[in-house]
């Protein structure tokens, strides 16, 4: 288990009735097998807390009549889930061919510079947060194809798809998320 998740605060101790009601609503979407609600509950959790700690995996497993390893094996598989806090704004630059042809490597470097990150620091997944600024405001990472190749290069900034990115516009784009 990673250091950040060994903190004494357990996310599961601060659940609100609203959160639990939302979780139960998601479980109700899977009348055949509660286990199907694993990903939806992990999304709900990460959207709420920013990352997934040990107590989260224990709580979700218990809610779905599973053992924690059934949840851990998902968190370690899917690149979307992380065990550490990421920046408030996450900039996910598409790395794959059409975007790369349109300059996505420069785009990623420029985003790193604009938020104050070392462009060489890499993100290797396995639950780690993407490289994040010291003030916790921004994370920048490469992701694989975002399915918008016709308007390359693109990035997903939080929930917003930004298309046809010009490197000259990146500083003002970053500014708009501060």
């Amino acid at each position: 288990m990673r250091a950040m998740t060994e903190s004494l605060t357990r996310q599961a101790d601060s659940l609100t009735p609203e959160f639990i009601a939302e979780a139960d609503e998601l479980v109700s979407h899977y009348p055949v097998s509660k286990r199907s609600a694993s990903l939806p509950l992990l999304h709900l959790w990460q959207n709420h807390f920013g990352f997934i700690d040990d107590s989260a995996m224990e709580w979700i497993a218990a809610r779905l009549d599973l053992t924690p390893v059934n949840i851990i094996e998902l968190v370690t598989f899917y690149p979307w889930f992380r065990r550490e806090q990421a920046g408030k704004t996450i900039i996910r630059v598409c790395r794959t061919l059409a975007c790369a042809l349109a300059g996505s490597y420069e785009v990623k470097d420029k985003f790193c510079q604009a938020v104050g990150l070392n462009p060489d620091c890499e993100h290797h997944g396995f639950g780690h947060a993407p490289p994040t600024t010291a003030d916790g405001k921004f994370s920048v990472e490469f992701v694989e194809c975002l399915a918008s190749c016709g308007s390359a290069p693109v990035a997903l900034i939080n929930d917003d798809l930004v298309e046809n990115i010009k490197t000259s516009e990146i500083p003002s784009l970053v500014e708009s998320y501060k």
């Binding site: 286990r35 199907s36 694993s38 990903l39 599973l66 998902l74 899917y78 690149p79 979307w80 194809c145």
Partner: peptide, 23 residues
């Protein structure tokens, strides 16, 4: 049902495993 960032889930049987809450 939302995926979680894995290309393999576009393969139909992988997608079904994912939907069942498994790796």
């Amino acid at each position: 049902h939302q995926g979680a960032g894995a290309y393999i889930c576009g393969e139909e049987t992988s997608l079904l495993e994912s939907l069942e809450g498994k790796r």
